[in-house]
Design a protein around this nucleic acid. Structure first.
Length: 222
DNA sequence: ACCCAGGTGGCCC
DNA sequence: GGGCCACATGGG
């Protein structure tokens, strides 16, 4: 199996794009809301939905609980899938309300593995949303693997793994368990993909494209 | 008019 | 355990 030098890739991306300042939110709760709203959705559309919630003064756990599903759906319409997402947001808030007295701080106080398991048990929170919440809101080192990460690894680094779980394992085994590093790394991969790795065209101007072979190293299969 | 976006769950085989 | 499908708005 060919694998890429993740630290060198990181350094190249960081020097090319600079710090990304993720997650763009003012509170941990806002990160959670954004993580759910951005499921398969352009961030621009999510921003509008969040602005609507802010304007309505409902961007809080209690605020969302105070809305009916229908009212909430109306406020987050611009983020798409608004019926599903309204349900998911309410479910998340109800869970924290019932099990942690509405305190994200208490919820996030759990060890990473337990926190992840609980998040994944909630309907509408899958691997990416859970890991985004853990990394960007709870600030614990869980590497986020999204469609971009898979695509970039396959195209530029010749990394083909059987599943996202394996890819996550690879990143976490290879990199130091550092929240700041995971934070910046995922954001940089998204930035790279947005600029140079759209689904159809394979861009030749990509900063890592020419250097691709540079990152390839052989490692034992496992 | 297409294609795509910082996915997830359900259903099928 | 993989391959489809629905979910939905808004920007390029």
């Amino acid at each position: 199996m060919k694998r890429c030098n993740l630290l060198k890739l990181y350094k190249t991306l960081y020097s090319y794009f600079g710090p990304q300042h993720w997650w763009p939110a003012k509170s941990k709760f806002e990160v959670c809301v954004g993580a759910i709203l951005t499921q398969n959705t352009a961030w621009q559309n999510v921003e509008k939905a969040i602005a609507n919630l802010k304007r309505a003064k409902k961007l809080s756990l209690q605020g969302i609980l105070s809305l009916s599903e229908k009212e909430l759906a109306e406020l987050i319409k611009s983020a798409g899938y608004y019926n599903q997402k309204a349900k998911r947001l309410k479910l998340f808030c109800e869970y924290v309300e019932q099990n942690y007295a509405g305190s994200l701080k208490r919820f996030f106080n759990k060890p990473l593995a337990e926190l992840r398991k609980e998040l994944l048990s909630l309907h509408g929170i899958g691997y990416e949303t859970a890991d985004s919440i853990i990394l960007y809101a709870a600030e614990k080192p869980s590497f986020v693997i999204d469609a971009y990460t898979v695509r970039i690894m396959e195209r530029f680094c010749n990394v083909k793994l059987k599943s996202r779980a394996e890819l996550k394992q690879f990143f976490e085994d290879t990199l130091p368990k550092d929240v700041k590093l995971y934070n910046e790394y995922h954001a940089l991969l998204v930035e790279l993909a947005k600029n140079f790795c759209k689904k159809k065209p394979l861009c030749n101007k990509c900063p890592i494209n020419k250097k691709c072979y540079y990152y390839k190293i052989k490692v034992a299969h496992g």
